[in-house]
Design a protein around this nucleic acid. Structure first.
Lengths: 215, 215
DNA sequence: ATTAAGAGTTTTGTATACCACATTCCTTCG
DNA sequence: CGAAGGAATGTGGTATACAAAACTCTTAAT
């Protein structure tokens, strides 16, 4: 059994992200450190350390004297983040070894087809999109870039949560993934990059349509 | 007089960055928290908070039980970072309002000309490059993107420090800036983006040539 | 009724002490 | 010389304290 060797602050960070993605934390509301520490069964110190790490990721804000609070969500921020991730993933794809891309293309296509089928269940769909993109970029040699993309997606998950249960969002995405995979199969990396960008663009629009009133 | 209203951890972070950019901190060497806290005249608490923030920026590493240490530098990381910043700045430029770009173009051109002149002194050159890029991107409406670029540049400054005193590095850059400004004057944003990318590319090469043995 | 002022309360930001445990260093022994 | 083991050191986390700032509530004044 693998005993926990990560610092407590990391585990707290994960737990906070978990709660955030389950919508259990009120947005734009101050965090009471003592109360939350008790609730998590830890002391203030590692909790504050976790909050500071999340602040640097843009998920939490702080103001001297007023403490920490969950960053508010906005359509504008979602658009901004999507624009950045789209560009970064495109870059990652361009930097990938073309040989590796053609080698993973069949698997990418297969997975996309499985999920564009209308009978896919929600549990299957939930983690699919992320996993597909991870595989797509698995050959990118720029470690920093991959780390950045991961951090950005952490923040974006807050927005995607608002449309869970809406199967169409992910199904449409899977259809677009098929096209990207086909491009890669054909060795057309630049075409894949273009389609990847429009995948992000259209995904953003689909989500924005559905959260107009919530944020 | 503006009294200091920022948290101590932020000031510590700045001080550490300052020392780092002056080369006063040994790279890839463990940081003794107690000793450094005393040295800075603060307690371990805000120091650790500052270190954790810097860790998230990729400037400091930590390992459970072993504490914090300055991240080692490598040619590969410098290449990775440059690639990312080049892409991000290009994106920021594309997102900027074209009208604003043409309006700042004359000033950009003027500044670039002043610094491409061989009689520019080192003090003048030192902060020039950053300021010029800041002005270039001053019209980008994507706040997240700008923040990201700023953070990445913080990390890159460690590498640029290795070539201070080498006037040619910056002078050549200023010449390239002239071309970018001219493109903007002519309303050719896409051309400017292209030149901006090659400015980063060639800047990277110039620096890599000069630090071959140091990292 | 609204605003202002003040007193009292809560919370943050930082400091300090403390300790379990992991790591590192040093010594000693085979 | 290398391995083993033990001492010294340092980290990661807990608990506590406290000044300064922010919030709350009451009361007073316009």
């Amino acid at each position: 059994m693998p005993i926990e060797r990560r610092p407590l602050r990391e585990q707290i960070k994960d737990e906070l992200l978990e709660r955030l993605s389950r919508g259990e934390l009120d947005t734009d509301q101050p965090i009471n450190e003592a109360q939350m520490a008790t609730e998590l069964g830890v002391s203030r110190t590692p909790l504050r350390e976790a909050l500071i790490a999340l602040e640097r990721a843009g998920i939490i804000l702080s103001e001297k004297g007023k403490g920490f609070r969950i960053a508010p969500m906005s359509r504008q921020e979602f658009r901004d983040l999507t624009t950045i991730v789209a560009a970064m993933e495109s870059l990652a794809l361009e930097l990938s070894d073309p040989g590796h891309l053609t080698s993973i293309a069949p698997r990418l296509l297969e997975e996309a087809r499985a999920f564009s089928a209308p009978q896919a269940t929600y549990e299957m769909l939930e983690r699919y999109d992320d996993a597909w993109h991870d595989r797509l970029l698995s050959g990118c040699p720029n470690g920093r870039l991959m780390e950045l993309i991961m951090t950005l997606k952490l923040t974006m998950h807050r927005y995607e949560r608002l449309v869970v249960g809406d199967q169409e969002v992910l199904e449409r995405s899977a259809v677009e993934h098929e096209r990207i995979a086909e491009r890669l199969l054909a060795g057309d990396v630049q075409g894949a990059v273009k389609d990847l960008k429009s995948n992000w663009e259209s995904g953003m629009k689909r989500i924005l349509e559905r959260i107009s009133d919530q944020v």
